[in-house]
Each structure stands twice: as structure tokens, then as C-alpha cells.
Write a protein that binds this DNA or RNA. Structure first.
Length: 121
DNA sequence: CAAGTGACAATAA
DNA sequence: TTTATTGCCACTT
């Protein structure tokens, strides 16, 4: 029985370790559709309570949080991430380069050729 | 079956 | 640098 992409997304988000963050594009890539970043967002938006999804660890590729206050205020989200151990830039953005979730060997094949993902620390 | 929708991402100005 | 537009894919109606 095949699970919808949404279920796949939920599983991935649930796999995000504490103190790390992931971007919608990253989750989409892991889900199997590198361009389905919007699907990830849609999945989060429709994410049913009970899954305890750490959706606050999912941010933009720029390291920017959700404007408007999808979590009840993005400042809340910033506090949460900071409390988890995620480092922030002075611009108020998450340091994606340092805190991006890197799932073991799972990505090795997907990122084949991306030898230098972090040119600068 | 066709059109519309959206917690995004990349490119242009 | 920020703002605006386009493309994108799965899901809903």
C-alpha cells in the first residue's frame, strides 16, 4: 500500500534530529521530488496534530522563517530553534550552512557530485 | 478529465 | 540589497 507523498514528508520531518533544521527543498529532494518543495509546505500546512511533527525545524533555503506567524509568531520559532541548539546569523536568519540536517548515507547517492556542499564554514 | 490551489525555489529587475 | 515574476509538483474540487 502506497503512502501519499505527504506521508513521506511527515516521516522525513519526524526524522529531523534536534538541533538541526531542514529546508523544504531538502525534504522534497529526500521525498523523491526535488522540485516539490511546495508539496512539502502543503504537507506541513495540512499536517494533522498527533504526529508531533517538528515543523518548526523546516525553514526556507535562505534560512528565513515563515512570515506571518504560522507557528504563532516566527519569533517563537526562533526561540525554539535557538533553544534546540541551532545557530543564528546576525540577520536573524538560521545558519542553514551549519545546521542543515544531513541524513547519513541516504543523501550520498542523491547528492552524487556535490563534493563541496559547504565551501565556507 | 480539467482547472485551481499552495508553510517553496530560482531568476530577473 | 529587496521586491516581483515564473516554474514547479502533488493534492483538492
Amino acid at each position: 500500500m502506497k503512502q501519499s507523498f505527504y506521508e513521506r514528508i511527515y516521516a522525513l520531518v519526524h526524522e529531523i534530529p534536534k538541533g538541526k533544521i531542514a529546508t523544504y527543498g531538502q525534504l522534497a529532494l529526500l521525498a523523491g521530488s526535488p522540485r516539490a518543495s511546495r508539496i512539502v509546505g502543503a504537507a506541513m500546512a495540512k499536517a494533522p496534530a498527533g504526529r508531533n511533527l517538528p515543523c518548526h525545524r523546516v525553514i526556507y533555503t535562505d534560512g528565513r522563517l515563515l512570515p506571518g506567524g504560522a507557528f504563532g509568531g516566527m519569533e517563537i520559532q526562533r526561540q525554539l530553534l535557538q533553544k534546540e541548539g541551532v545557530t543564528f546569523l546576525r540577520d536573524g536568519r538560521v545558519d542553514v550552512k551549519r545546521n542543515l540536517w544531513q541524513p547519513g548515507s541516504l543523501v550520498s547517492a542523491a547528492l552524487e557530485g556535490t563534493e563541496n556542499m559547504f565551501p565556507d564554514a
